[in-house]
């Protein structure tokens, strides 16, 4: 059984994104070089979107494969 790399990648980035965004929302804007901007929350949101997009593409490819396997030859 082959593995579509978008599946683990999508899952990993969704997890990382949710973790980062959740931490950013709880911890709020921090001091230091990025003191003007809650970058954890925003960047975590972007990672989550990317992860979900990868999962969506993998699911679409799986459905297309299943359709072509079931099609009359």
């Amino acid at each position: 059984m082959t593995l579509d790399v978008r599946q683990p990648m999508g899952l990993m980035f969704t997890l990382l994104g949710m973790l980062l965004a959740g931490y950013g929302l709880v911890a709020g804007t921090t001091a230091g070089g990025a003191a003007w901007f809650n970058i954890d929350a925003w960047w975590g949101g972007l990672l989550t979107l990317f992860g979900l997009a990868m999962l969506g593409l993998a699911a679409r490819a799986r459905r297309a494969l299943a359709r072509s396997a079931g099609a009359p030859r």
Binding site: L16, L19, L20, Y23, G24, A27, T30, A31, G32, G33, A34, I39, D40, W43, G44, L47
Partner: peptide, 11 residues
Amino acid sequence: GHYFPNGLLGL
């Protein structure tokens, strides 16, 4: 180390 807060620092 200078710019990233915890969280982004891990990333």
